[in-house]
Amino acid sequence: MGKRVLLIEDEPNIIEAIRFILSRDGFAVDTHSDGSTALQAVQAKVPDLVILDVMLPNRSGFDILRDLRAQAETENLPVLMLTARGQKKDREMAERFGASRFMTKPFSNSEVLKSVRELASL
């Protein structure tokens, strides 16, 4: 059975694209698009991997990441961060808060797929 990926993202078209790419490769993709309830969504059914956008409505992706790392059950959960703000300080902050990997939009489909595969197999 395929690994389960939780995609936390608010842009419908990007959700659509990532879901297509990952589904094609056999992943089961759940989505969530609100920042304030994202943490509960993860905890409700901890996935094999989280893809997390930084700029979410109501709550920043960085805050969600920090909370995830603060809890034992999600402490080591692989998290792939995506951001449309490709600045250096965003990357640094992602590293400091413990992102497993960091990618800037626009991304290449194959790279996303490669990263997801690597992270999911850990």
């Binding site: 990007i14 694209a17 703000r85 600045q87 626009p106």
Partner: peptide
Amino acid sequence: LSQISHELRTPMTSIRAFSEI
């Protein structure tokens, strides 16, 4: 600039992803 970057990158992400598909 950061805002503009975000606003430009979001549609470009969709375009790139779907064109690659």
